[in-house]
Amino acid sequence: MSITEQKAAAGMELQSQESTYLDAINQALREAMEEDSRVFIIGEDVGVYGGAFKVTKGLFDKFGAKRVIDSPLCESGFIGAAVGAALMGLRPVVEVQYADFISCGWDQIVNVAAKIHYRTGDPVPLVIRAPSGAGLRAGPFHSQSPEGWFAHTPGLKVVAPATPFDARGMLKSAILEENPVIFFEHKYLYRRLKERLPKEAYEVPLGKALVRREGNDVTVISYGAMLHKAIEAAEGLAEKSISVEVVDVRTLTPLDRETLVGSVKKTGKAVVVCEDNFSYGVAAELTATISEAAFEYLDGPIVRIAPPDTPIPFSPPLEDAYLPQVVDITAAIEKLARY
């Protein structure tokens, strides 16, 4: 079922204006803050300035300095403070200016936030929003997709929505979570995607993958900005009578293995497309999941498409060579389809 069909099925009335992926996140923040006075935002330049990407635009004016907090430049400091506030019953939403900078707050995430509940049973209702991803000519320090680091850390939930509808609904779910959630919003999608969103508030549950496009010959599994390249490749291959199913992972942890495996059992062939770099990454986990659970259904090798194991280069021809492109995905699917 497509998203449009989903919305229709849910009987949701749509807004008259289209919303970008970025608007959708802003709407989720606004709704959550209107609904629950415990929700507050903390980060760099999120207040008066409205955030480096303007995701929090207008929220400072509406909710004031108490609830939209401009922090000094200290990722470890403000992520740690958010953990403390969460333990005391608030529901902080942290903005890390670029996902690349999340490593400055690494320890507070992986050793503090992630390891509290297992030891003490105390909930840590914390969301860390991290604009991730390449394609914007932003170089090695403003383009990374570090979701694999966190997906590998027990105690964290890791999500990566690919559409405005999901961005709004999954952020709402993340804010309602009692666990720390790392919310990777793909900044390449911020202003490139638009759709009409429901008027009323809604949630998209975490931990559920979605079949975005149905097909019979090959399953392509992806998420984030790469999902859209996968869909483009799938549509192009329809002209060559290759029927491609595209599955959007949406949540990396907890991973909806059932939906992924179910699709591969149907098609017998799988291509995994990730922006996280090749080795020891998300693509490896997705591939292993299929191999373990659907080996006897496979009619060909599982194909991994991911960037090479290099820093992300700045210059356009280098970055284009680094990122998987539609042509690469198309070629891989076609080759596997004919295997």
Partner: peptide, 12 residues
């Protein structure tokens, strides 16, 4: 690590 966390408790 709990210095920032304590500051966050105080924030709450």
């Amino acid at each position: 690590d709990f210095y920032p966390v304590a500051a966050g408790a105080a924030l709450a």
